[in-house]
Nucleic acid binder design. Structure first.
Length: 474
RNA sequence: GUCCCCGUCGUCUAGAGGCCUAGGACGCUGGCCUUUCAAGCCGGUAACACGGGUUCGAAUCCCGUCGGGGACACCA
């Protein structure tokens, strides 16, 4: 590659950042980082009805949470600013005028109603609709009317094609192309036109986007040619499908919301890993951390087949990262989830210990926070079934014996605490389970928890003794 | 309907003519470990859509059929 690549992610700010967009952004970002290029964020905010500042923020926040940073874009005004299409309207006007002057585009003063009628008529006759070109050649707006700017598609037997970096050669005959609207009467560009003008004026070298845009590549290619510009390279990524096998969409699939997963306590590293493996692979590697992702990523191993969203694998990955990341790091991320659940988390909350104790049992930060409930409570509420089974006549002497040992224990740590359980089981001549379970129930309220020594260590001496007493007193 | 893309276990995928009696991962499942639950370890389940070619040889190349998805706006 002779020049450093410049790639972009160009979402329209009409809602939250969705998974498909995040994956597109990630692939582009990875490509830029891999080749020492530039990753640009551009807001295609030309849909006046649906674009909102809140959505812009939501997208920025989503990307930030995922750790996808941009070199140019909102908040990072570079040499190609501005990065909002509504601030670039003069450019679209300028190039539209040029094409009209050259006879490559024209003012179309057909009304929407007229177009709609013809379209319906064509449908009724089961005939593919095509603009019939009644306004072709029109270089001015007829008096008393408004007009859009329409591009004149080529006719004849030609074929247009491009070499997709993922899919290979893709072609389409001229006969299947149609005159399309570039610019509305109010000067707002439509997707194909705005996209081309911006990609060219921003010196984009490669356009990476979802396969739903394959067909729009052709009108865009026509535009590049008419304008005398060299088109960038294209790479079309497979789609991400919902459980119903349809394209993941905001409307039908709640899981399409990137930040939903953040709220669910999935680690961003896990979501990145999951999403990058949907469509891309590197041999048999499953858990791939950022540096490796950057080193290995390439379009040659992006597939052409759409992938189905698999929540099980996402949560599995989430746990992998819970175990992989430094405990202190996980602890810092866990804290808000504990606070959110009303737990009192003091400064010396031994959060890292909690992470160590639960990371093999929890798959998300939410699960971890839920599991940690008994760690931060004053006293504990006993599960009735568990209490009946373990705190009855058989359990009481065990609790008494354990309590006596604990009071005398000097080092309140996992190993000596485990040793206490062992000693008591030998003393009373019963299995370890007969000792650990009553203690576990008394201290956590339930039959399931980390190892007993670890459990007692986390809860702390004073609180453990208090809970033992409470269990004995019932 | 027209055009475009795709088609390996339920899901994500490895596979670029012989290394494939098709490998890995998730899930499901049997076992081991074990003071509970996990985690971990060992094992099992399960796929080249179909039909024709090309070739000594095809999951891999070609054609057709079928299937899935996407695009057909003054949305992006």
């Amino acid at each position: 590659m002779s020049q450093k690549p410049r790639v972009r992610f160009a979402p329209s700010p009409t809602g939250y950042l969705h998974i498909g967009g995040a994956r597109t952004a990630l692939f582009n970002w990875l490509y830029a980082r891999r080749h020492g290029g530039t990753f640009i964020l551009r807001m295609e905010d030309t849909d006046q009805e649906r674009s909102t500042p809140e959505s812009v923020k939501a997208i920025l926040d989503g990307l930030t949470w995922l750790g996808i940073d941009w070199d140019e874009g909102p908040g990072k005004e570079g040499p190609y600013a501005p990065y909002f299409q509504t601030q670039r309207l003069h450019l679209y006007r300028q190039y539209a005028d040029q094409l009209i002057a050259e006879g490559k585009a024209y003012y179309c003063s057909c009304t929407r109603e007229e177009i709609d009628e013809r379209r319906k008529a064509a449908e009724a006759e089961k005939r593919a609709y095509k603009y019939e070109g009644t306004c072709r050649g029109q270089k001015t707006v007829p008096a008393g009317r408004t007009a859009v700017v329409r591009f004149q598609a080529p006719s004849g037997d030609g074929t247009l094609g491009f070499d997709d970096q993922v899919l290979g050669t893709i072609t389409k005959p001229y006969a299947d192309m149609d005159d399309f609207v570039m610019l509305r009467a109010d000067g707002i560009p439509l997707y194909n036109f705005g996209c081309v003008v911006d990609d060219h004026t921003m010196d984009i070298t490669l356009v990476g986007r979802g396969q739903e845009h394959i067909n729009s590549t052709f009108p865009q290619l026509l535009l590049y040619r008419a304008l005398g510009w060299t088109p960038p390279a294209f790479a079309h990524f497979p789609l991400i499908l919902g459980p119903d096998r349809e394209k993941l969409s905001k409307r039908k699939h709640p899981e399409a919301d990137v930040m939903l997963h953040a709220r669910n306590g999935v680690l961003p590293e896990a979501l990145n890993n999951f999403v990058v493996r949907l469509g891309w692979s590197h041999g048999n590697e499953e858990v791939i951390q950022r540096p490796q992702m950057i080193e290995w990523f390439g379009f040659d191993h992006v597939g052409g087949t759409s992938g189905v969203w698999n929540p099980d694998k996402l949560t599995w990955l989430s746990q992998q990262y819970l175990k992989l990341l430094p405990p202190a790091d996980v602890a810092a991320r866990l804290r808000p989830f504990l606070l959110e659940r009303g737990m009192d988390v003091p400064a010396d909350a031994r959060l890292e210990q909690v992470v160590l104790a639960f990371r093999e049992r929890a798959r998300t930060l939410v699960e971890m926070a839920e599991m940690a409930r008994w760690v931060y409570s004053r006293g504990v509420s006993l599960d009735e079934k568990a209490a009946t089974k373990h705190l009855g006549p058989e359990g009481r002497p065990v609790l008494d014996a354990v309590r006596a040992q604990l009071v005398a224990l000097t080092a309140w740590e996992t190993a000596p605490l485990d040793a206490v359980v062992k000693t008591v089981s030998e003393q009373l001549g019963v299995g370890m389970g007969k000792v650990a379970q009553p203690v576990r129930v008394a201290v956590t309220g339930n039959t399931v928890s980390p190892g007993i020594g670890e459990t007692l260590a986390i809860v702390g001496r004073a609180e453990v003794l208090a809970r033992l007493d409470a269990a004995l007193a019932r």
